[in-house]
């Protein structure tokens, strides 16, 4: 269990992490989501006592990080796959970490085996590919068999096989009852692994909720209709008490009715339909919408409009403002959902 209370980090004028309060609970994978520059890595460094908070604090099982005796036995972290001396062999890298926390040498062999690096254990780390470096970093996190694991962007730069491996590893660690905290800037990645979500943007907490709640709140489904008899269709829908929103290309978007109901309604009034398709806004779009106003670095200016009223309340996902911004976020339901 990791608890953050009012955690704040300021660099001069710039607030990197702004009054974060949330808890990371055992037995599940908690996703820590935010755009680049949202303050995820800074938050994680403060959790490990590497950076000093400007205000607030972090407790690991009720203690400050520096109070932990042999911290690797409580919490294992992968912050940066390159946080190691390239001239040292994989084995010696892990051995020096193990010795500093009184972990037996045999455990080094075990974790090397777990991450599949036994064959290159005596090779220098600087010859490792990104994926191998990531595996070595994960071996270091697993070394003390800790109850809490933290991974900062673990899938970055990995090949599909490596990504698959890390996903399964995180899930199995959580199934063993451990606390697993993993950061990402990709909603799609989180949707596959995390059961709980903490979303931040510009250092502020935007959402702290379970993945099913996030999906329910943020991925609204609707039906898309196109008809050559558009005006009549609108009248019919209006009489049936169904609200339709006009979308681009002459299409209509309807909330609160299934495609079956709408098809039958059109049939009863002998309306020709060119399109009748159930749609779902992707989680990725929902995430972008949630963090739109807090994205620090835009590729260009003409992005989706910012939410009308400034800062969202912390601790809750802000209510999505209905309107045109949503039109951009709609697409075909993904296969396999």
């Amino acid at each position: 269990m990791i608890e953050l209370a009012g955690l704040t980090k300021r660099y001069g004028e710039k607030v990197a992490v702004n009054n974060l309060t949330f808890a990371v609970r055992p037995g599940m994978v908690t996703g820590f989501l935010g755009p680049n520059g949202a303050g995820k890595s800074t938050t994680m460094r403060m959790m490990l006592g590497l950076d000093n908070p400007t205000a607030g604090d972090v407790r690991i099982d009720g203690k400050h990080y520096a109070q932990l005796k042999d911290p690797l036995k409580y919490i294992g972290a992968l912050l940066d796959a390159k946080a190691m001396h390239g001239g040292r062999s994989a084995f010696n890298h892990l051995l020096c970490l193990a010795q500093s926390n009184g972990i037996p040498r045999t455990r080094v062999h075990e974790v090397l085996d777990t991450v599949g690096l036994t064959a290159v254990a005596r090779k220098k780390a600087k010859g490792f590919s990104l994926g191998m470096g990531q595996r070595l970093g994960i071996a270091g996190a697993l070394l003390g068999d800790p109850e809490i694991l933290m991974f900062d962007e673990p899938v970055n730069g990995l090949d599909p096989e490596g990504i698959h491996w890390i996903r399964n590893l995180m899930k199995s660690l959580a199934q063993q009852g451990r606390t697993v905290f993993v950061s990402s800037h990709l909603m799609s990645e989180m949707a596959l692994t995390a059961e709980h979500l903490v979303v931040i943007g510009q250092g502020r907490l935007l959402a702290d909720l379970s993945m099913p709640d996030f999906i329910r709140q943020n991925s609204r489904s609707y039906v898309r209709l196109r008809s050559p008899q558009r005006e009549r269709l609108l009248d019919v829908l209006h009489q049936a008490g169904v609200t339709a929103v006009e979308a681009g290309g002459g299409a209509l978007e309807v909330d609160g009715a299934t495609s079956e109901q709408l098809g039958e309604l059109a049939a009863r009034h002998q309306l020709v339909l060119h399109e009748l398709s159930p749609q779902q806004a992707s989680l990725e779009e929902a995430f972008m919408q949630l963090t739109a106003e807090s994205v620090e670095y835009h590729a260009h200016a003409d992005h989706q409009g910012p939410a009308p009223d400034g800062a969202p309340p912390s601790g809750q996902a802000p209510g999505r403002a209905p309107g045109q911004a949503w039109g951009a976020g709609r697409q075909q339901p993904r296969k396999g959902k």
Binding site: L48, G49, A66, D80, K82, A83, M84, S100, N101
Partner: peptide
Amino acid sequence: SNEYSTGMIRTSLAAVPQ
């Protein structure tokens, strides 16, 4: 300074926060 130039310092201080 090897600790700093390689980034090992973060791993080291996470292992030994004192």
